[in-house]
């Protein structure tokens, strides 16, 4: 199953990913980001992340 993973070392918590997420699947606080199970792997966040902190992974 495909899943979006985020790299804590690259992420700057800027919220650009949240703004293009059609599913409201991203929780962003001051210093944490979480992709919830509402995610449909549309890839918008992966394409737009200025720091390339998001990537798609095959899991399970």
């Amino acid at each position: 199953m495909k899943k979006i993973n985020y790299n804590r070392e690259l992420c700057d918590f800027c919220g650009t990913c949240v703004s293009v997420c059609p599913q409201d699947a991203i929780e962003l606080s001051e210093n944490n980001l979480e992709i919830t199970d509402k995610c449909t792997v549309c890839m918008n966040c992966v394409y737009i992340c200025p720091l390339r902190a998001l990537e798609v992974k095959n899991e399970g």
Binding site: C14, G15, T16, V18, S19, P22, D24
Partner: peptide, 15 residues
């Protein structure tokens, strides 16, 4: 830019 308040009230704000 990362607004979710509007969405929670049913306004489409994602781009």
């Amino acid at each position: 830019v990362e607004s979710r308040v509007g969405r929670w009230a049913g306004i489409k704000t994602w781009e």
